[in-house]
C-alpha cells in the first residue's frame, strides 16, 4: 500500500482558540487583565471622580475654602445637626468657621497635583540618568551608585523632613504655600529609585541579542536607547510610577500633618487633620472627614498600582 501524503484538511480543529489564548500582545493582554479586575475598575472610578472634583473645584465648592466665619465655627455635619438647612455648611465647619466640604474639594486638587507633578519629574530625571548609567556604565554609573548608597541609607520620610524643615523659610518654600518646594523635595528623594530601576533593567537588556542586532545595523547610541531599550523597560517603569503617585500623596499628607508640609491656610487633607486635631476629642468630624478622603484615595491608587503590576508582570501574580 502506498503511503499517502497528508492533506491540509482536518487541521483546523482546536487550533484557533489555542492561538487566540497565546498570541495577545503584552499591552493587549494587560488591558484585558485590567478590565477583568473589578477592584481596579472600582479604583479607577474613584480616581476619576476625585479628578473631576479637583478640576472643577472652583465651580463645585460651595464656599471659598479659606473664608472664615467664626460665629459659625465647629458646626456639625448635616447628619449630626437636626436643625440643618441647605444654606449651611453641609459637612460642617472647622474651628475657624471654614466650610469643610469646600476645603475637602480644594484639597483634592493639591493631592492630585502632589501625586502627579513630582512623579513626572522623577520619571524624566530618573529614567534619563538610569538609562545613561546603565548604558554607558563607567563614571556615570559609579556616581549614581554612590548617590544611591547614601540616599538609600535614609528613609524617604526622614529625608523629606530634613529638606522641608530647612528650606521652608526660603523664597522657594513660600511659592504657592510650599507646594513648589514639596514637588521638588519629593522629586529629589524619588528620582534615585527610578534611576536604579532603569539602570538595572538596562544592564540586563544591554547584552541581549536584539541590541547586538541593532548595533550591527549601525544604529546610534541614542536610537538604541530610545527605540530598543526604553520600550523594554516601560512595564516596570509604569508600575513604579503607579506606586509613586500614592507614595507622594502619602508623603504630603504626613508632612502637612506634622506641620512641616504645605502651609496653612492652603487646604490639604494633611493640613486639615493637623489643624483639627486640637479640637479632636470634642469635635471629631473636621479630622475624620479628611482622614477618610486620604484613605480612599490611597486605597484607590494602590489598587490601581497592584492591578497594573499584575497585568504587566504576570510572573509576579500571586494566584
Amino acid at each position: 500500500m502506498a503511503t499517502l501524503a497528508a492533506t491540509a484538511s482536518g487541521r483546523h480543529h482546536a487550533d484557533a482558540p489555542e492561538l487566540a489564548r497565546k498570541q495577545r500582545s503584552l499591552w493587549g493582554d494587560a488591558v484585558y487583565r485590567l478590565k477583568r479586575n473589578r477592584a481596579v475598575m472600582a479604583a479607577l472610578a474613584v480616581v476619576l471622580v476625585v479628578a473631576v472634583l479637583a478640576t472643577l473645584a472652583p465651580l463645585i465648592a460651595p464656599y471659598d475654602p479659606i473664608r472664615q466665619d467664626t460665629p459659625n465655627s465647629l458646626m456639625e455635619p448635616f447628619w449630626g445637626n437636626p436643625k440643618f438647612t441647605l444654606a449651611q455648611y453641609p459637612l460642617g465647619s472647622d474651628q475657624l468657621g471654614r466650610d469643610i466640604l469646600s476645603r475637602l474639594i480644594w484639597s483634592a486638587r493639591i493631592s492630585l497635583l502632589i501625586g502627579f507633578v513630582p512623579v513626572t519629574l522623577v520619571f524624566l530625571v530618573g529614567a534619563t540618568v538610569g538609562m545613561a548609567a546603565g548604558f554607558y556604565g563607567r563614571w556615570v554609573d559609579n556616581c549614581l551608585m554612590r548617590i544611591v548608597d547614601i540616599i538609600y541609607a535614609f528613609p524617604d520620610l526622614l529625608f523629606l523632613i530634613i529638606i522641608m524643615a530647612t528650606l521652608r523659610g526660603t523664597f522657594l518654600g513660600n511659592l504657592l504655600g510650599g507646594l513648589v518646594l514639596m514637588f521638588g523635595a519629593i522629586a529629589v528623594v524619588g528620582w534615585v529609585g527610578m534611576a536604579r530601576l532603569v539602570r538595572g533593567q538596562v544592564l540586563s537588556l544591554r547584552e541581549k541579542e536584539f541590541v547586538e542586532a541593532a548595533r550591527a545595523t549601525g544604529a546610534t547610541d541614542g536610537r538604541i536607547m530610545f527605540r530598543h531599550l526604553f520600550p523594554n523597560t516601560l512595564a516596570p517603569i509604569i508600575v513604579s510610577v503607579a506606586f509613586g503617585v500614592p507614595g507622594a500623596i502619602l508623603a504630603e499628607a504626613t508632612l502637612s500633618f506634622l506641620g512641616i508640609g504645605i502651609k496653612p491656610p492652603t487646604p490639604t487633607w494633611g493640613v486639615m487633620i493637623n489643624e483639627g486635631f486640637v479640637v479632636f476629642s470634642t469635635t471629631p468630624w473636621p479630622v475624620l472627614l479628611p482622614a477618610f478622603c486620604i484613605s480612599l484615595v490611597m486605597l484607590a491608587f494602590t489598587f490601581l498600582g497592584d492591578g497594573l503590576r499584575d497585568a504587566l508582570d504576570p510572573r509576579q501574580r500571586t494566584k
Partner: peptide, 25 residues
C-alpha cells in the same frame, strides 16, 4: 504537542501526522 484542555477528537497525533486519513481526525 496538542492542547490538553481541548485535545483533538480523533487521534491526538493526527494534526501533526503526515500519514493521516480522515478516520484519524
Amino acid at each position: 504537542p496538542p492542547d490538553l484542555i481541548a485535545p483533538p477528537p480523533g487521534c491526538r497525533f493526527a494534526p501533526r501526522c503526515q500519514y493521516k486519513r480522515d478516520i484519524c481526525d
